[in-house]
Each structure stands twice: as C-alpha cells, then as structure tokens.
Amino acid sequence: MQSAYRVAAVQAEPVWLDAEATVEKTIGLIEEAAAQDVALLAFPETWIPGYPVFLWLDSVFGQMPHIARYHANSLSVDSAHLTAIRHAARRAGVTVALGYSEKDHGSLYISQTLIGADGGVLLHRRKLKPTHVERSLFGESDGSHLKVVDTPLGRVGALNCWEHLQPLNKYALYAQHEQVHIASWPTFGLAKGIAYALSAEANMAATQTYALEGGCYVLAPTQVISERGIELFATTDQQRALLTAGAGNSRIFGPDGSPLGKSLDEHAEGLVVADIDLSLIDLAKNAADPAGHYAKTDATRLLHDNRPKPAVVRPGELTGPLFPDLDEFDTDSAAV
C-alpha cells in the first residue's frame, strides 16, 4: 500500500445536462491531475450531468421541462460514457472518485464510483437517502452502500452531501477504519445568504468535523455555477434570486481536521491539491479513535445491516459482476 501521495479535489462547472460534453471535461481534468502527479482525484456530487438545481426552484410540475433531459444524460454503469472515463483513468494512472446521476432503467440514483488507476472499479455506491426535494427525482439505496474498501492508496470510503449530517452513516464508515474519505458536494450557489444550512460555511464545517471525528483525510469536491448555468435553470426573477454565480468551495482536510492545499476563488475552476501521508492517521487516532479505544460499547453501539436489499432476488444474481470488464472494450477508446 502506498502511504504518501498527492490527492486533488475538483472545483469546476459541469456542462449542465450534457453527459457527452461533461465526460470530455472529466477526461481533461483527469489528464490535468496526472500532469500534477495526483494519485487520487475526487469529483463532486452528480458531476455528470450536473447537480439538478432545478429541483429547488419550482414545483414538481414546473420541473418537468428538465426531467427527460436529465434522465437522458444520466449514466448507466455499462455506458460508453463511463467506460471512456475508466479508460482515461487507466491511461493517466489516476484513481478517480466519480460522482454522477446513475440511470438504472427507469430510476435514477445519486451515485459514486471509485475507479482504480488500472481502470477497474473498486467501489460503487448510491446515496442512502436523497435529501428533501431530491426524493422527487432519485431513488434510495441500503446499508450495503455504506462501505470502505481496501485499495493501493489505503482504505477509501465515500458519502454524498448531507449524508455527512447523518451521524450513524458516518460511524458506519469510521468503524471500517477509513483512511481517505470522499465527501462529494454540489454547488453552494443555491439559496446563498437565504438558507444557512445550504451554505458552504455550514457544510464545510460538517466536512471538517468528519475528518476530525474519523481521524482520516477528507477530499471535498464542489461544483461551480456560472451566469450561463443560472440562465439555463432560472426563468423568473424569483428563481434567479435563489441562484448565485460561483459558490465553489472545494477543500481537503487532514486527520486532525486541518485544512490542506490552497483553496480556489469561488468562481474559479481547477484542482485543490495536497500531499498526504497515511502514517499521520496513527497520531490522530492515538488521541481519539471513535470505533476503537475511544468507543464506549457498554453505553452505545451501532447496528449496521450491510446486506443488499434488492426488490427482487433471483438465485445467483447477487454475485454477478455489476460493471463490465474493461478489457472487453477498445483499450484506445478515449471518447464516446
């Protein structure tokens, strides 16, 4: 296992509701990360095809002009789009934590896939409970999606957005001895100055707390929204008042909660980069290991049911591969 290496959190604007163009941008960011010797690159929540800010701007019926397009530009796990990103990760030799809207037939899920430097899939998970109005578009998952996996870069786990406000979700990952955590967020340009709970300040505080509580490194990528993006979603003055350009706030935190790397202006696109050393986790956990010596099992314990709960169970299906073998595809494929 590699102990010391470079990581990066993306801060960028997707090409809203356009999977093909955002995949091209994704591949460009992977190549940019490789040029900076980044070993692990993290993308925001629903980076492809962009966070559905329209859910917060109108009634369910008012959202309908965007729904079909959002479905059409969401990625299935065996899609050519996702395969192109896996090839890009392998060419660059970069491990990629990708956030996207996953299309599974008629349903969508807020998903994260950890792609290894060889293009293989190390982890695939879905957000357990979509937040508030997100439930009108996305489905839920189960306890099998609270998972930390062994990788060449250490034990890696991931959560999306307000899953970081669910204490039991967090503890389920802490208890799996997570070393590097991907905390994927959308843009904080929604209801800026109106709803503090949706602000960068509040949610980065939760992210920093995750690093301190879990004694792990945390990569927190975020999206940027430009005036062009606002024009796409906001058609009335009331809707425009709910969206503010910029609001990127990508961060990296160390296992003692300290900020790492140089942050970007909220309007800027790029990478927040930091060098990390997993051996420092031992120092942090020497003081407080929440699921180890600092636990109090006679007082409180977590029941984590990690069994998959599919709607239909057929013999043999649960053991079959979810993602196709990358070698089945043209190894020189770079785009779709």
Rank of each mutant, 00 (worst) to 15 (best):
S3H: 14
Y5T: 03
A8E: 04
V15M: 02
V15R: 14
W16T: 10
W16M: 12
A19P: 02
E20D: 14
I27V: 15
L29P: 01
E31A: 14
A35V: 14
L41W: 11
T46V: 15
G50Q: 05
G50Y: 07
P52T: 06
V53R: 11
L55P: 12
F61H: 12
P65W: 10
Y70C: 13
N73K: 04
S74G: 01
L75S: 08
S76G: 15
D78R: 10
D78K: 04
D78F: 07
L82R: 00
T83N: 08
I85D: 09
R86L: 03
A89S: 14
R90T: 11
R90N: 13
R90G: 02
V94R: 03
V94S: 09
T95K: 05
V96G: 05
Y100Q: 00
K103P: 13
H105P: 02
L108S: 01
S111G: 00
S111N: 03
L114Y: 01
D118C: 03
D118A: 09
G119E: 02
L128T: 12
T131I: 11
H132Y: 14
E134F: 10
D142A: 08
V149S: 09
A158G: 13
H164T: 11
N169E: 13
K170H: 05
L173A: 07
A175G: 12
V180F: 02
H181V: 02
I182P: 03
W185F: 12
L190Q: 01
K192L: 14
I194R: 00
Y196V: 09
L198K: 02
S199Y: 03
S199E: 08
A200R: 04
E201I: 02
A202D: 08
A202N: 10
N203S: 06
A206Y: 00
Q208H: 03
A211N: 01
L212V: 02
E213K: 07
G214K: 02
C216I: 03
V218I: 10
Q223G: 11
I225P: 13
R228P: 07
G229Y: 06
G229S: 09
I230P: 13
I230R: 10
T235I: 05
T236V: 05
D237I: 03
Q238V: 14
L242W: 05
L243I: 11
A245W: 07
A247T: 00
A247I: 01
R251Y: 01
I252E: 09
G254A: 14
P255W: 11
G257K: 08
P259Q: 07
G261E: 01
G261V: 03
H267I: 08
L271I: 09
V273Q: 04
V273S: 02
D275S: 05
D275R: 02
D275Q: 10
I276W: 07
D277L: 00
I281T: 05
L283F: 04
A284S: 15
A288L: 12
D289N: 08
P290M: 03
H293I: 08
H293R: 06
T297N: 01
R301W: 00
L302N: 04
D305S: 06
V312Y: 02
R314T: 12
G316F: 11
T319V: 10
T319G: 15
L322R: 15
L322V: 15
D327I: 06
E328M: 13
